[in-house]
Design a protein around this nucleic acid. Structure first.
Lengths: 242, 242
DNA sequence: AAGTGGTCTAGACCACCGA
DNA sequence: CGGTGGTCTAGACCACTTC
């Protein structure tokens, strides 16, 4: 199970150990409800220190795959194991699922930020921002209407680029990595042209998300107000009490 | 800022340090975008070890309050700081917000689990389960329709108890602590009597959540299928890339 | 009593950044 | 170059559970 650990490469040992453990859990080598070895036993076997093994195990606890009890040991959570939500983009998710994402660009304008947008982005009202509105399709069917605002200094994203790639991909290529997202998820009825764009009846329910993202410096990168087709998108999370 | 650390009490030092730091961030003592001291400096000042301080800081990074960069330092995330989602119950949340929660019990029956319910709970089809259906009010206004299934050995929750307290409170009093929740959030139109119960027009949009929870042993405790009034409930999360 | 995880220490070396 | 965070070590003591 712990064969082929690379002790000199760039990948930290704790991350390699966590990877192997997760693999063993997902493939059923360690069954649901089963106990893993104690951290001391693993540490000795792999000739690694206990804190290193602890870190690997703790990462999987945070992912909701393991539970630990003092005096007892560490067990695999029973029930089917779901993959935890990562901070990924819709475009990449669809792409990875083989769903052939496509984007219609409805709007691409440099404007002055309205009060609410400026507030969310941490700018002065009236500051220059880029406003884009897109429809995202998967396998030809509309999945979401995506409306975004970005600070003026990120406003050089071209219309062509936005038609071909996801927003986060473009930002990443510019050296802007998304690190933190605060989002609020709600339900509401379609408004304006949303029903038409998503192929839904008027006032049909949609999943609505407002998201503010920050990069690795803590700077606000983007405000997104999105609505999703109720049958083609849902949101999964794993919550773990610490 | 770090006055009154209790060095002998039951509360771990890293948690006390994290608490003080979070307080300083939320009250603006350390402003958005501002840098905190290096972990070594804090460790020396508090006469604690570096790993202890690291753990405190890392907890706040995981909460989305701080960002760290090698060679630079640790900064407060800019923009308004939102409170991260905890694994809490609706009842407790409403109570804490001073919203005077109230519960109507619509259904309380011991039944045999249907296939889908049994599967989610990790039981055999036909196994005995407790099925409850409730309407939760805040300040007299309906917020959610809550439908839950629990394994048979947790089925001794009385109707009276369920009218007076939240489900998680009752489970906790029985020594069952919720530790992990997997949930899926979606939007849909009201079905059946939901519109009536929530005071909404027929087929109005609702936020729909399916949640499976596990206790500290990894055992499946509860399946919940809930729908929420779209104007009275929304869902906030913070995602942090690691 | 023995074994588990929870906390904490006092170092070490490294990669990365800015001056 | 010095300072920062990222990783890792080899111990220690404790609380809790099971036997």
């Amino acid at each position: 199970m712990f064969a082929d650990l690379d002790r000199t490469g760039p990948l930290p040992m704790y991350s390699q150990v966590a990877e192997r453990l997760e693999e063993a859990i997902r493939t059923g080598v360690i069954p649901a409800g089963g106990r893993i070895e104690s951290e001391i036993a693993i540490a000795e076997r792999l000739r690694l220190s206990r804190p290193t093994i602890r870190r690997a195990i703790q990462d999987l606890v945070d992912k909701g795959l393991l539970v630990r009890r003092r005096g007892i040991g560490t067990q695999v959570v029973s029930g089917r194991v779901t993959r935890a939500v990562e901070l990924t983009s819709l475009f990449d998710d669809l792409d990875a699922a083989g769903a052939r994402p496509r984007t219609d660009l409805l709007l691409h304008e440099a404007i002055q930020a309205a009060d609410d947008v400026a507030h969310e982005l941490g700018l002065q009202a009236g500051a220059p921002v880029l406003h884009v509105r897109r429809v995202r399709y998967a396998d030809g069917a509309p999945v979401a209407v995506l409306e975004n605002w970005l600070p003026g200094d990120l406003a050089d994203l071209t219309e062509e680029a936005l038609r071909e790639r996801g927003l986060y991909q473009l930002l990443r290529a510019r050296g802007v990595g998304i690190r933190i997202a605060h989002q609020t998820i709600a339900a509401r009825g379609c408004a304006g042209d949303e029903a038409d764009l998503l192929g839904l009846p008027a006032r049909a329910p949609v999943l609505s998300v407002e998201r503010v993202t920050h990069d690795h410096t803590g700077r606000t990168i983007e405000l997104g107000r999105h609505c999703y087709h109720p049958d083609r998108y849902r949101f999964s999370t794993t919550l773990v009490a610490r």
